[in-house]
Design a protein around this nucleic acid. Sequence first.
DNA 1: GATGAATGAGCGTTCATTCAT
DNA 2: TATGAATGAACGCTCATTCAT
Lengths: 220, 220, 220, 220
Amino acid sequence: MTRVTFQSGTQHVADVAYLPVGKREQTKVQNRQAILDAAREVFGELGVEAATVRDIIRRTGLAAGTFYNYYRSKDEVFAALSDDGARRFAPILKSLRHKGHFDGFVREAIVAYFEFMADEHNSWAARRPEGEIQPHIQGETPEMKAVFAEVKAAIEDAIAEGRGPASDTEYMTAACIGIAREVGDRMLARRPIDTASAADFAVEMILNGLKGLPGAMRGA
Amino acid sequence: MTRVTFQSGTQHVADVAYLPVGKREQTKVQNRQAILDAAREVFGELGVEAATVRDIIRRTGLAAGTFYNYYRSKDEVFAALSDDGARRFAPILKSLRHKGHFDGFVREAIVAYFEFMADEHNSWAARRPEGEIQPHIQGETPEMKAVFAEVKAAIEDAIAEGRGPASDTEYMTAACIGIAREVGDRMLARRPIDTASAADFAVEMILNGLKGLPGAMRGA
Amino acid sequence: MTRVTFQSGTQHVADVAYLPVGKREQTKVQNRQAILDAAREVFGELGVEAATVRDIIRRTGLAAGTFYNYYRSKDEVFAALSDDGARRFAPILKSLRHKGHFDGFVREAIVAYFEFMADEHNSWAARRPEGEIQPHIQGETPEMKAVFAEVKAAIEDAIAEGRGPASDTEYMTAACIGIAREVGDRMLARRPIDTASAADFAVEMILNGLKGLPGAMRGA
Amino acid sequence: MTRVTFQSGTQHVADVAYLPVGKREQTKVQNRQAILDAAREVFGELGVEAATVRDIIRRTGLAAGTFYNYYRSKDEVFAALSDDGARRFAPILKSLRHKGHFDGFVREAIVAYFEFMADEHNSWAARRPEGEIQPHIQGETPEMKAVFAEVKAAIEDAIAEGRGPASDTEYMTAACIGIAREVGDRMLARRPIDTASAADFAVEMILNGLKGLPGAMRGA
DNA sequence: GATGAATGAGCGTTCATTCAT
DNA sequence: TATGAATGAACGCTCATTCAT
């Protein structure tokens, strides 16, 4: 089982600035990043719906108008964060595909997903100053949502390709996804966050569930 | 297995107006209902968070102030809808509890939940004019949310009481809930809506999944 | 010095219903009175500006629309209360006029004014239930304002007629009025309310002040 | 007797903008001033209670939201105006305190108060377009109210410190205040406004009145 | 005449967005 | 580009007033 480590969104985007750049480019990248960081926080604390552009920009210290030099709306930042998450996660997931063994694929996908969530959650919580009053936290970041969508797509594909058991593939996907989502959420609420045992549980549940299905088991 | 039929919220409340009443009372009931209907639609289309009181009242054709003759806030309408759903669903669910057999309980709970969803969905969709452009739909009504919460509580209890298999009960509940929710959603998207086969699937998945769990199977 | 006693507005208007009346007339009078009473309370508690028609009608237990069968607006109730006060006070004041002696006139006018205020204040406070939380009180009723206007007019006349000292009569009136108003207000704030000593003070202040004026003293 | 001249609030604040500034700062100052001016007018015409934020902003021609870039509420504008008045008046008043001679103190305080009122009134009236229909005017600006409060406090102190005659000090203060307020108001209604003779009158009235009091005269 | 729900103007306030600087 | 004040639509809500019952 491959151990993966994820880099927080902040570092990731900064790393992208790999070419020597003038000061102007520098601050452009910094501002863009500052907005993304602030948005991540605000989304996590207030929820995506309740968050306003003002909330985001206020936290950056930038001027209101500056926001619109980078994004056209709150939804666009949301999409950017989602993309960021998806982009970071996609290669891991892709490497798991076409490995043939459905059971192994599921396990690794779930593990990767849970670890991503845990990492995201940690790096996000860690960035908050200690002494401060902790604001109300909602906790699901756009990245998590995006990665969830990726995993879902992967499982959908795997099942549809017949590498998983043949039954009602749509419902099968739905069941896997449901388990992953709900167990993953509970996992994040526990201290310490234990991705391994959560993954064990979810994988058992999924594989056993699928195996018992009437039309079942034709897996690779 | 008892076959249950649910009445839509609209009809339900209308039925209550069984006594001959003055015109004033009539319009009051109608307005109250119009607000609830409008709210259900708006919540379904925009989501509860994004919906505004003015969205709701606009759709009724009533004056802005009229809303406040009936409800004090958006949340109060939401609660009213939820209550309506929960109240209709609660007796069914209660009759399933303490039946001893965990497998049977799960099956009947899932069936009841799916049938409620289907019914709710139908009555809600039916009320929408045909020719109109279908606005973007989120689709989950407060009633569904409320009933979902009921089912979740029931499963939580059943598992916690040890009538289900003993393992990590929290994760077990989460898995059941996840399956019910996701499969239920897919079910609603199909035509015709077939609650029986969706329930069959979900129940199989849940029971098989739980049975295979390491600490497993002590259920009644 | 004549001792005068004032009847509260409530009793006064009730007394007016001296003729045998049908039930309809009865309730009409009662409603009108209920509105006036409620208005007096509300004006006293919230202030005339802040008070709303709804505040008044709510306290009567009558329906909203009923208000408009009696008065067209808050201002009209205000005027009615003022009239009531003025009407009750006018005869007392008139009996003091044309008595010739300016000093005596001033004394009796001030005494009458202060006693009216005290009485009004008492009967208003007395009607409030004991056990209840005392709402914030502003304390100046329309009646007091109206009576103040009466006193002002009387003094204006007396001074203009030359029965008082000849100087700048407008300023003289202003000074008297200012003393009466401010000392009267302080009087109401003390417990027990002592109209006699307040009146003594105000009268001394007024008469001595006027006597010392340059063009002074030609009084009757 | 020192002759003092007050600058109107408008000029005063404008004078403060003594440094050359960018256009932005300029319009900011202008807008802030426009709001204050509009507020003064509206308060004067409708009374502070009845005035609304929208009344104020409407008169400026600015957008509704702009108000909140400068003040958080009507009360804050009111406070700003009051502060302005008090700040301008305070030094004059302070220079009069502790001068020992009660008579002189009263005279100068009254003179200063009347001159402030006259000046305020003039600058306020002057800013009104000629041809327009004069709206109903209540006429007391927050500045006047604030300055009145200052004078009242000063007299209260002086009397309480025993520098004035010893009698019922609360009533004494009330009487002085009443005279100052009422005579001052009449003064403003005359053309031309003659502060000197009004002050002469008020001071005579106050001092003579106090001197005649029973417990009287122990003043410095 | 009494009722009380409906009305809709208007209020205080927030917010996304623009645009002169 | 960055700035941040101006904008005005929209929100939640209250209120005086009307009018069918």
